[in-house]
């Protein structure tokens, strides 16, 4: 499998008040295409920061992130927006669906940005709704869905444009254990069937068990790594 993400010696430092905080300290890792990777660790270990840097939402203090061979640090403004739109899918902890749009509109939003035709968008949305088990809910607004259903919509939105990688920041944190395991199983099925690369952060041990590769962070450095 080819490398999709290459993280080279990245560090992230914040200044909180007068105190400098090192969120990540000289981290390097490689994620290969089709991997199902969990980044785990306690709160404050640097999981979200690492995902933000991988996605280009944040800029490292030092080091470099390469996504599919392209250095993110060289991209700015619209170029970076377009890159995120076409290559990265996001799943957020608190779903972050657009409240005024219904399920179908939320899912097709990225395709709309990409200029995909209405017919193709419609076909793709129906296809993806079937995959995430929400075929009958396309007209509902996020407020009319349960947390688990909202996160399924978020997964559908993240994968609708076939990105190179899907990054999920604690996707199960706001879900009950049953919904959390269901969601993880669905993500893993999509990973197996579609070959999509998933990287997600978690501190839930039951979720960690389902990852094929586990990267443990502690105090901003990789503490240990397991491949199952």
């Amino acid at each position: 499998m080819s490398d999709i993400i290459k993280v080279e010696n990245i560090s992230k430092k914040y200044i909180s008040g007068q105190v400098p905080i090192i969120a990540l300290d000289n981290v390097s890792l490689i994620i290969k295409k089709g991997e199902f990777t969990a980044i785990a660790g306690p709160s404050g270990s640097g999981k979200t920061t690492l995902l933000n840097l991988i996605s280009g939402l944040d800029v490292p203090s030092t080091g470099n992130v390469m996504l599919d061979g392209k250095p993110l640090s060289n991209m700015k403004g619209s170029e970076l927006s377009d890159f995120r739109r076409d290559h990265i899918g996001f799943i957020f902890q608190s779903y972050n669906l657009i409240p005024v749009l219904n399920v179908k509109e939320n899912i097709e939003y990225i395709m709309l940005l990409q200029g995909v035709s209405e017919h193709d968008r419609h076909t793709r949305v129906l296809e993806i709704l079937k995959e995430v088990g929400l075929t009958d809910m396309s007209k509902r607004r996020p407020a009319e869905l349960s947390g688990g259903q909202q996160q399924r919509v978020a997964v559908a939105r993240a994968m609708v444009s076939n990105p190179d990688i899907i990054l999920a920041d604690e996707p199960t944190a706001n879900l009950d254990s049953h919904s959390a395991i269901d969601l993880l199983d669905m993500m893993r099925r999509l990973n197996e069937e579609k070959g999509m690369t998933f990287v997600f952060s978690t501190h839930d041990s039951r979720i960690m068990e389902r990852a094929r590769r586990l990267i443990m962070l502690k105090d901003g450095v990789i503490d240990k790594e397991e491949i199952r």
Binding site: L57, S81, D82, R84, R85, D86, I88, F92, L113, R157
Partner: peptide, 10 residues
């Protein structure tokens, strides 16, 4: 969220 999803600033 919109920016994270790839919406251009413009």
């Amino acid at each position: 969220v919109l920016k994270a999803l790839g919406t251009r600033p413009y």
